[in-house]
């Protein structure tokens, strides 16, 4: 045999897992929420989602091609995911130019300025969202009521359940409405059942583990009780479901072992309810996640996974 053999170190086989596969897996998990957002907010939702996804992919392409002069990685699905998650965190009547600014901040500052996928400290979609919330507080907090299929900028708006609760009023929606998503709020956050379907899919496909979302749910519910709030309303309103299942579990900005994930999730849950109860904003999920993103390196440094032989069962 004349041909040279390949020599490399073991292992000689690979699982076939890919970054792309993980990203598209999350995108598939987001499909139920995508459909419900289109169902409740119609044209507005469509325009916001398409604008955010296209501009995120375009900005990533432009930055990689002309600024960083590196191989473009827009096909790995991460920019699409950032765009979709950003759109899910926006009201359906947001003007296109504001969405484009949000996408630029999310991709440019949130992701590429740190070195691209894998190197960012904060969840890029949330960076974009919080930037818009602080810059355009009125536009970002006027939420169209559900069921206005053909309206975009002209949609009738109303206060969200959380805003009403913060103002000391009744939430105004039945728990069933909140569960299925027939309420006003950001595009993707309204339907708890669609988000939970996505959660189940990601658990079955082993894309994420249960630790972060469950820690958030449990601690947020406990914290609501302590603060005298209705835990069911708190869990099913605002961005808690979307944040716990899809934003806090972002691979890059969350801790890397199960113990760390539980600590991280517990703090997000507690901070969210504290901000909702005592903060100036009615919703605290994005702030809580961004704050804990900043603590992730610290958690990774001090919280180590369970070691083999740690629990000595000898004798």
């Amino acid at each position: 045999m004349d041909k040279k053999l390949i020599v490399s170190l073991s292992p000689h086989i690979h699982s076939g897992n890919t970054v792309k596969g993980a990203m598209y897996g999350v995108l598939i998990a987001l499909i139920p929420a995508l459909l419900t957002s289109l169902f409740f907010f119609g044209l507005g939702a469509f325009i916001v989602i398409v604008t955010a996804v296209l501009s995120c992919v375009l900005f990533e392409f432009l930055i990689q091609k002309f600024l960083l002069k590196q191989k473009t990685t827009i096909c790995d699905g991460s920019a699409v995911l950032t765009g979709l998650l950003l759109a899910f965190n926006l009201p359906s009547n947001l003007p296109i130019w504001i969405i484009i600014i949000g996408s630029l901040v999310a991709i440019g500052i949130g992701k590429m300025s740190f070195g691209g996928l894998g190197n960012n400290i904060f969840n890029p979609a949330l960076v974009g969202r919080v930037f818009l919330l602080i810059s355009f507080p009125t536009a970002m907090t006027s939420w169209p009521l559900p069921g206005q299929w053909s309206s975009y900028l002209d949609a009738t708006t109303g206060a969200t359940p959380l805003a009403l609760i913060a103002a000391g009023q009744e939430a105004g929606y039945s728990p069933m409405d909140m569960f299925f998503g027939s309420m006003n709020g950001s595009l993707g956050e309204v339907s708890a059942i669609a988000l939970l379907l996505g959660f189940a899919y990601m658990l079955i496909r082993k894309i994420i583990t249960w630790h972060i979302p469950v820690a958030i749910f449990v601690v947020a519910a406990l914290m609501s009780l302590i603060c005298g709030l209705n835990p069911i309303e708190q869990l099913f309103s605002g961005g808690l479901m979307l944040g716990a299942i899809f934003m806090a579990t972002d691979y890059v900005s969350s801790p890397m072992n199960k113990r760390g994930m539980i600590i991280y999730g517990a703090f997000i849950g507690a901070l969210t309810i504290l901000i909702r109860k005592f903060g100036a904003y009615p919703e605290g999920m994005s702030f809580a996640i961004l704050i804990m993103n900043a603590f992730t390196p610290l958690i990774n440094t001090y919280v180590k996974p369970k070691r083999f032989g740690e629990v000595v069962k000898n004798g």
Binding site: T73, G118, N119, M256, N257, K258, K304, P305, R307
Partner: peptide
């Protein structure tokens, strides 16, 4: 490619290490 910190390596390590 760059590590995306997905923690799959941590979950499969039979010795409880953080390979990444």
């Amino acid at each position: 490619t760059d590590c995306i910190r997905c923690s799959k390596c941590v979950n499969v390590c039979p010795m409880g290490l953080t390979p990444s």
